[in-house]
Amino acid sequence: MAGVDLTAYLLVGAVLFVCGIVCMATKRNGIGVLMGVELVLNGANVNFVAFSRYTSLGLDGQMMSLFVIVLAAAEAAIALAIALNFYNNHQTIDVDRGSELQG
């Protein structure tokens, strides 16, 4: 089983994380941005669970990932509500249109 250790999982987490970041940075669709956020959170989750398995972190890592999942769900609900409001106000979901706060 050589090679399958903490490092491998961390690499997967890193890929997930960077994909999420890029997703957030490129998607003009608000929902797409949300999906990017989900990817980022999942990357973190993978790391948590991996540490839980391979270090003395133990159950705590899993517990943290559980909380992250729950909070991600909550965040998704709120974000969806925000997106709906955004849509109501701008008649579109394009986040580039919501630039009222520009300097």
Partner: peptide, 14 residues
């Protein structure tokens, strides 16, 4: 810098 564009902010952070 304060473009009001969400994606640019993410970019900046990255």
């Amino acid at each position: 810098l304060q473009t009001g564009k969400l994606r640019q902010y993410v970019m900046f952070i990255a």
